[in-house]
Structures are given as structure tokens and as C-alpha cells.
Design a protein around this nucleic acid. Sequence first.
DNA 1: AGAGATGTAAAACGTTCGTTTTACATTGCA
DNA 2: TGCAATGTAAAACGAACGTTTTACATCTCT
Lengths: 174, 174
Amino acid sequence: MDTTTKLTAAAEQLFDRHGYMATGMDRLTEAAGMSSRTLYKHAGSKAQLMARVLTERDRRFMARIEVQSVDALFAALEDWVRVEGTRGCLFLRSNAETGGDTPEIAEAVATHKAAFHRRLGDVIAADLGHADPALTEQVLVLFEGATHAAVYRGAEAVSAARTAAAILVERARS
Amino acid sequence: MDTTTKLTAAAEQLFDRHGYMATGMDRLTEAAGMSSRTLYKHAGSKAQLMARVLTERDRRFMARIEVQSVDALFAALEDWVRVEGTRGCLFLRSNAETGGDTPEIAEAVATHKAAFHRRLGDVIAADLGHADPALTEQVLVLFEGATHAAVYRGAEAVSAARTAAAILVERARS
DNA sequence: AGAGATGTAAAACGTTCGTTTTACATTGCA
DNA sequence: TGCAATGTAAAACGAACGTTTTACATCTCT
């Protein structure tokens, strides 16, 4: 495991669990097990590090929702939540924490959310056999809602979203 | 407008727009138009101030969703979003920013979310004529989803949620 | 008239922030 | 053999953090 990977992994864990602003660089050097000099050589800056964390997370998340049906989409979210826990969407959270004023972060978030919306459209097109922008928006809302409701409602929120999505898809199919 | 009200209003605006951690007390004294001595006399501490902001917001928000139907619920959210903008849920955001480690904040958030869930159950009971926990969970997910999806999808997310909720309620009615 | 509450302005508290620097050790490749 | 590259440990940078303090001005009520 090379230095950059170790650093990014440690940063993701701390930023996700305690918040971007609340995580100091001292805490990060300790968690990553490296000197601050090495850290800055690989990270550039705290904001650039967060941006890299988000890009990495985007890759991991997008890989998990490479599916062909809406139901599989929510099954993937159930898995994700089991593995990663329920702390809401790290992209929206880091953007909000910085008021959208940190360009590296804002850009990584915008890129991810655009890709996410596109992917949802593709999944629905594959499931229905044709594009359905209105249904896509509804499923996006359910997915985002499950992610955030799960913070205080637990996994139940995700299965409720899954059920609701199935009903909406069934209705759109006929 | 008395000092405490002015302070709470200024704090809500800054915390909401720029984030809790990213907002310094200097910026807050300037925005509230008072000395730091007066500010601390009324606020106690930054965390207590945030807790009071959340309690205030809970009152304002809950008043707006004192309705009798699911459709009116999403109409109220459309109004809320028009007035307050789309930056996600301040409760979940401040809890995440502090990693859930600030007791005053964590408690205010838990109280609000419990009340919110209860209210949704009441609205659905009034709309359907009987309680429906499964539908309540689905509507909660749609509401939370609309709130967060609107950050990058705009008001369209809220109307999509409204449409989806109408379908689910109609189905539950028969 | 005088006391108590409420306010301002501004300096200071010690701590922590993100980041850079100094000085030195280890490794892999020409 | 020697020189880049890559790492560590630790001190230092100035700025900003949340909070308290000192010194003084206004009010309000008896």
C-alpha cells in the first residue's frame, strides 16, 4: 500500500466520521502514520486532499451502482450502507461545510452529482426499455432520501425507498 | 427586535450559508452588530448558540407543516425552499459537521427528527383516516430526498417528490 | 441621586489551525 | 561510489480560533 493510497484512505475515514473542517491536519498525520512533510508532498493542501478523497469515493460508489434495474440500485445502496455506515452523502456534506466556496471541492461534487444523475437515467432506460426523465427524478429523490433518512431512521429507510421505487417503476412500465 | 433575536437570526443565516465550523465568532459579532461581550452573554457558547438556532428553526419549520394532507406537506416544502433556499437539512448538516460529538447540537437534532417523524405519521393518519407506518417511512424518505436533491437539482426535485408521494398515497388509500 | 442592568470598544487569553522549514536517515538506480 | 528521490522527526510560521477581561458609556427604575 503506497503512501498516497494510505493517506487518501485515512483522510476519507476522518473527514467522513468527524467532518472536513473539524479534522485537523495533526490528527491526519497521526492516522496516516506519516510526517506532515510527506503528507503535504502528496496532498498539496487540505482542500486538494478532500477533492482527491471525493474523486476516489466517486469511483468506488459508481462501480457499485453499475446495475441494470432500479431494484438492483437500491439493493446496492443497502450493501453500501451496511459497509460504509449511514452518515449522509459525503459530497453534499463537504460542499455545505465549505459553503461551496472551495473550488476543488465544489468541482468534485458537481462532477459526481452530474455523473450520478446520468447513471440513474441509464439504469431506468435499461429497466424500462426507454428513457423516462420524470421517473429518473423520482428515483433520484428516493435514493438521496434513503441516504439521508438512514442517518436517523436506519436501514429501514433504504428498504422503504426500495419498495416505493418498485411501485413507481411498475406504474411507469404500463 | 431584541438582542437575542437579532443574534439568533444572524447566526442562523451564517451557519446555514457558510457552515457551522467555517463561521468564526468575529464574523458573527459583525453580522449581529454587537460586541463579543454582549454576544457571549446571550449565546453562552458557540455550540449553545447553534443549538438555539436549531430549536428556533424547528419551531418555524414545524409550524409550516401543520397540514392535513401529504400533498399539502410537499406544497409546504415548495414554499420553504422558495423562501429559505436549497442547502439541505441544517439539522443533519450540523450534526455531521460535529461528528455527533457536540451534545447540545446532537440533542436538538434528535429532538427535531423525532418530532418530524411523528408529525409525518399524523399527517398521513389524517389523510388516510388511519395510521400507516410503511407509507410514513416512504413519505419521510421522499421529503428528506427532495430537501437534499434540491441542492443540485433545484425545485424540480421537490415537485417530483410531490408527484411520487401522490401516487404512493393513492395506492395506499385503496 | 444613585444603583443595577445592559450595552460598546478593544485588547488579551492560550490554543489550534494549515503550512513550511531545518536537519538528518534510508533507499534504489547510474 | 555517489546522487537523486523519498522518507522521518520536530520546530517554527503567522493567522485565526473561541472565549474572557478591562475600562467605560447609557439607560431605567426607585
